[in-house]
């Protein structure tokens, strides 16, 4: 396919490209990396998983993932999708942890209290009602 003799690819590249080309190569490489980081969720956006108040796992909030944590009442599933996480428990009386639904903003928590499992978002965007520091209920 390529006519002519094969030289060292590097030298060919340098000969074939203009300074403008090389600038574009660099800029687009940076852009792609930045896009990758951006889509992974905001920098530092992580999910912490606690079992009986001990940190048992940390996971980035990007991409898709799911695994099982051994809770006091049986397995609890932790799911991550598109920068958010949720709990799905199958053996908890009131399913409050599951009913909390997807969390993705800094400080948000979902917990199954009888299972002893808690997940928390660290870093990432602050919640929409960040103007409240705490709620008495």
């Amino acid at each position: 396919m390529s006519p002519g003799r094969w030289r060292l690819p590097w030298r060919v590249l340098v000969r074939a490209s203009t300074p403008g080309d090389r600038g574009l190569m660099l800029a687009s490489a940076v852009g792609i990396v930045a896009l990758g980081l951006l889509l992974e969720g905001p920098p530092g956006s992580r999910l912490q998983v606690f079992r009986d108040n001990r940190l048992v796992a940390t996971h980035a909030l990007g991409g898709t993932a799911g695994w099982s944590v051994d809770g006091r009442l049986g397995p609890v599933i932790v799911e991550i999708r598109q920068g958010q996480a949720r709990l799905r428990e199958y053996r908890s009386p009131r399913l409050i942890g599951t009913r909390t639904g997807w969390i993705g903003r800094a400080g948000q928590v979902a917990a199954c209290v009888p299972c002893g499992v808690l997940i928390r978002v660290e870093g990432g965007p602050s919640p929409a009602d960040a103007d409240l520091d705490a709620v008495s209920e």
Binding site: L132, D133, A134, V135, S136, E137
Partner: peptide, 25 residues
């Protein structure tokens, strides 16, 4: 700080020159 035990809150201090903002469910 704010200590929140099951929705019961106790505050000390504030956030610099801004007060703590608390909600009631």
């Amino acid at each position: 700080a704010i200590v929140n035990a099951g929705g019961n809150l106790r505050t000390i201090g504030a956030k610099g020159d801004r007060p703590w903002r608390l909600g009631i469910r």
